Simulated assay, not measured.
Amino acid sequence: MLKHILKPRKKNIGNFPVNRLLPSAKQKMIGPWIFFDHFGPVELSENKALDILPHPHINLVTVTYLFDGEIVHRDSIGSFQTIKPGDLNLMVAGKGITHSEREPLEIRKNKRLMHGLQFWLALPNEFEEIEPAFFHYSKENLPTFEVNDAQIKLIIGTAWNKSSPVKTYCDTLFAKINILKGNSLTLPNEEEIGIYVLSGEIVINQEKVTQHSLGILDKESTHILASTDCDLLLIGGENIGKRFIEWNFVSGRSERISQAKDDWKAQRFNKVIGDEGEFIPLP
């Protein structure tokens, strides 16, 4: 049996349609994954662009992956990186970081699609207050392979006897799977695991998981069957314990979130280098 099937909460963030899956009332986390937004696809024009103003994070890792579009990442430790479809951006907030995410100026005059994923990973207790860091991985460096006719891109973690080079702080899994109608796949053995249907429909233990739903699997649910051609996202890893989450902050200690709110309100966070003029105020 599936433990849960999560349906997305529809959000609009800066006029962008967003499916939010985590956290939810039924399931706060899947392994270390504590936040899951699927944004777009949305067509943008000269008068409509992605501009996420500078904002802070603590005690977490942001994971950004695009299907369409381009985003320029800047942060308070001096990182400057354009992410394109198939690449991965990993930002380690640690003891505190500020960043912005904006479309490049040179593409804004043209019609274009924006479509992608933003996840947050909670850091294990011993890593929550590490120095902030940023890592970028080009799509050429992320393993792609085939298992039982399923096309798999292993973005984070180790599975199916393959390993991704992406930095991790605990057992963490993230994979993209393309599987054709009628085919099945055995999933990796993880302490906690969930599968999101980007497109299509799958069956797990005779239960359907439809498009834009996130199935949370139990230990007995290790096989999926594609009832249509499907694009899927697999996330999972080890349970690292309870986390508090408020606004852009995640921590194992509620008092640490209170401190971060006070620090942001008083503008004690370092500013984004090269993007100092604006910021998102504390709600």
Rank of each mutant, 00 (worst) to 15 (best):
residue 6 L to S: 03
residue 242 K to E: 12
residue 270 N to A: 15
residue 218 D to N: 11
residue 20 R to E: 07
residue 155 I to L: 15
residue 100 S to E: 10
residue 265 K to V: 00
residue 196 Y to V: 08
residue 84 K to Y: 15
residue 34 I to C: 14
residue 182 G to H: 04
residue 101 E to R: 06
residue 152 I to W: 04
residue 37 D to Y: 07
residue 129 E to H: 11
residue 27 Q to W: 05
residue 227 S to F: 11
residue 25 A to K: 13
residue 175 A to D: 06
residue 185 L to Q: 05
residue 114 M to E: 00
residue 46 E to N: 15
residue 43 E to F: 12
residue 280 I to Y: 00
residue 84 K to L: 10
residue 207 E to I: 07
residue 119 F to Y: 01
residue 202 I to N: 01
residue 171 D to M: 10
residue 89 N to G: 11
residue 229 D to Y: 07
residue 141 N to Y: 11
residue 132 P to G: 02
residue 4 H to M: 09
residue 107 I to D: 08
residue 137 Y to G: 01
residue 229 D to P: 06
residue 142 L to K: 11
residue 66 L to F: 03
residue 103 E to I: 03
residue 124 P to V: 09
residue 217 L to P: 02
residue 255 E to F: 13
residue 106 E to V: 02
residue 194 G to W: 04
residue 10 K to F: 08
residue 144 T to M: 12
residue 97 I to D: 06
residue 68 D to H: 14
residue 235 I to S: 04
residue 228 T to P: 04
residue 184 S to T: 14
residue 268 R to K: 15
residue 172 T to G: 05
residue 15 N to D: 14
residue 87 D to T: 11
residue 181 K to T: 07
residue 11 K to F: 12
residue 162 K to M: 13
residue 28 K to N: 12
residue 211 Q to N: 04
residue 252 G to L: 01
residue 204 I to P: 04
residue 205 N to W: 08
residue 2 L to D: 13
residue 227 S to I: 11
residue 9 R to Q: 14
residue 122 A to M: 06
residue 6 L to P: 04
residue 92 V to K: 07
residue 21 L to I: 10
residue 90 L to I: 14
residue 217 L to S: 04
residue 181 K to L: 14
residue 46 E to W: 12
residue 159 A to N: 07
residue 179 I to C: 06
residue 69 G to M: 03
residue 35 F to K: 02
residue 19 N to G: 05
residue 192 E to V: 12
residue 224 I to D: 06
residue 41 P to E: 08
residue 95 K to I: 09
residue 100 S to V: 01
residue 223 H to E: 13
residue 132 P to D: 02
residue 164 S to K: 13
residue 5 I to L: 03
residue 161 N to Q: 13
residue 185 L to G: 08
residue 148 N to V: 02
residue 230 C to E: 03
residue 24 S to I: 07
residue 102 R to E: 14
residue 211 Q to A: 12
residue 169 Y to A: 02
residue 167 K to V: 14
residue 111 K to N: 12
residue 130 I to V: 08
residue 257 I to F: 02
residue 79 S to Q: 05
residue 230 C to P: 05
residue 72 V to E: 14
residue 124 P to F: 05
residue 135 F to T: 02
residue 123 L to I: 00
residue 257 I to T: 00
residue 38 H to I: 11
residue 23 P to W: 08
residue 111 K to W: 08
residue 193 I to D: 07
residue 35 F to H: 06
residue 71 I to S: 06
residue 44 L to A: 04
residue 139 K to W: 08
residue 9 R to V: 15
residue 163 S to P: 07
residue 222 T to P: 01
residue 46 E to K: 15
residue 261 K to W: 04
residue 5 I to T: 00
residue 49 A to V: 15
residue 36 F to A: 09
residue 198 L to P: 06
residue 172 T to L: 06
residue 120 W to K: 10
residue 90 L to N: 04
residue 174 F to A: 11
residue 188 P to E: 03
residue 19 N to Q: 09
residue 169 Y to I: 01
residue 170 C to R: 12
residue 160 W to P: 03
residue 154 L to D: 03
residue 192 E to L: 09
residue 17 P to S: 09
residue 97 I to M: 08
residue 165 P to L: 00
residue 77 I to W: 13
residue 263 D to E: 15
residue 49 A to M: 06
residue 224 I to R: 01
residue 165 P to V: 04
residue 36 F to R: 10
residue 53 L to M: 11
residue 58 I to S: 05
residue 87 D to H: 07
residue 73 H to R: 07
